[in-house]
Design a protein around this nucleic acid. Structure first.
Ligand SMILES: [Mn+2]
Ligand SMILES: [Mn+2]
Ligand SMILES: [Zn+2]
Ligand SMILES: [Zn+2]
Lengths: 146, 146
DNA sequence: CCTTTTATTGCAAATCGTTTGCAACAAGAT
DNA sequence: ATCTTGTTGCAAACGATTTGCAATAAAAGG
C-alpha cells in the first residue's frame, strides 16, 4: 500500500471519515505525478482506472488533503490562475521555473531561515511560512539557441 | 502631471499608441492606491471620476502596463485566485502578508542575491527574477488575543 | 479647423479554474 | 444483512479575467 494511503488511513482512524476507491486512486496518482500536477492532470490519470470519477471529487479530495497538511498547492505558473498540487506537505522547499520549457526544479537552502529571522527582527513580525520562487532558464534551455 | 503618466507618454512617443482619459485615470489611480489593489478596486476608484469606464478597459490597461514593465502583478492572497497589482515594476522587492488582518508589508534584502547566486551555481540555472513571500502575524495581530 | 485613420473603448458574451447544493450511493459500524 | 451517514456524480453557480465586435475618439495631415 502506498505511503500516502497509509498516512490517510491513520488520519481517518483518529478523525473519522471513509477510505473510498476515488480517494485511493487520487492518492496513488499524487504519488506517481511527482512533478506539480494540476487538478485536471490528476483527473486525467485517475480516469484511466475509473472513468466515472468526477473532477469535483478530485478538487474536494485535494482540498481535504491540503487541510490535513498532507499536500500543498502553489501558483507556480505566472500569468496562469491555476493551482498546482504538491504531493509533499508545506515543508520548506522552494521552486525554480524555467521560463522557456516550464520545468520545475525544487530546492532548499537553510539561508532562507536567516532571511526570515532578519525580517522578523527588523519588522517585529512573526513569520510562519515562506514561499520562494525563481524564474529563468534551466541548463538545457540556456544552451539552445533562441 | 503624474509620474506614471509621464513615463507612459514617453513610451507612447517611441512605440506609438494613444493617451486616453481612461488610461490617464487608471494611471492616477495606481499612484493613489499604493497598496496592492485588485482590478476591481482600481475600477471602483476611476469610476468616481468617470462612471462609464468599463472593467475590461481596466484589465486591458493593466496588462498593457505590465507588458511595458511599468507595473507588476502578484498572487498575494493565498486561497484567492485574484491578481493584485503593484504600481511598481518588478524591481526586486518582496512581501509579507499578515494571515489575520491581510496587511502587506514590503521589504527588501540583498541576501536574496546571495541565495540566487548559490542556486545558480548549484543547479547551473540562469535566474532572471525572484518572488519571495512570507506569511505570519504582523506586530498588531501578535499582541491581540486570538 | 475639418477630415481621415486606426488605436482604443464599452458592452455582452465567452472562457477558465474552481466550488457548491443536492439526491443517489456506498463504506463500514452495529 | 441492515442502517447510518460520509462521500460521490452531476449540473449549475461562481469569481476572475479575457475576447469579438461595432461604436468612439485620439491625433495626424490637410
Ligand atoms: Mn514542490
Ligand atoms: Mn509590492
Ligand atoms: Zn528549460
Ligand atoms: Zn495583522
Amino acid at each position: 500500500m502506498s505511503n500516502l494511503v497509509q498516512e490517510v488511513n491513520l488520519r481517518l482512524q483518529s478523525d473519522g471519515g471513509r477510505m473510498t476507491t476515488q480517494r485511493r486512486l487520487i492518492l496513488q496518482a499524487l504519488e506517481r505525478l511527482s512533478d506539480h500536477p494540476t487538478a485536471e492532470e490528476i483527473h486525467a490519470l485517475v480516469r484511466k482506472s475509473d472513468p466515472s470519477i468526477n473532477l469535483s471529487t478530485v478538487y474536494r479530495t485535494l482540498r481535504w488533503l491540503e487541510s490535513l497538511d498532507l499536500i500543498s498547492s502553489h501558483h507556480l505558473d505566472q500569468n496562469k490562475h491555476q493551482d498546482r498540487f504538491d504531493p509533499v506537505s508545506a515543508t520548506d522547499h522552494f521552486h525554480f521555473r524555467c521560463e522557456k520549457c516550464g520545468t520545475i526544479i525544487e530546492f532548499n537552502d537553510p539561508a532562507v531561515d536567516d532571511l526570515v529571522a532578519s525580517f522578523e527582527a527588523r519588522h517585529n513580525c512573526q513569520v510562519k511560512g515562506a514561499t520562494l520562487m525563481f524564474y529563468g532558464l534551466c541548463p538545457d534551455c540556456q544552451s539552445k539557441k533562441d
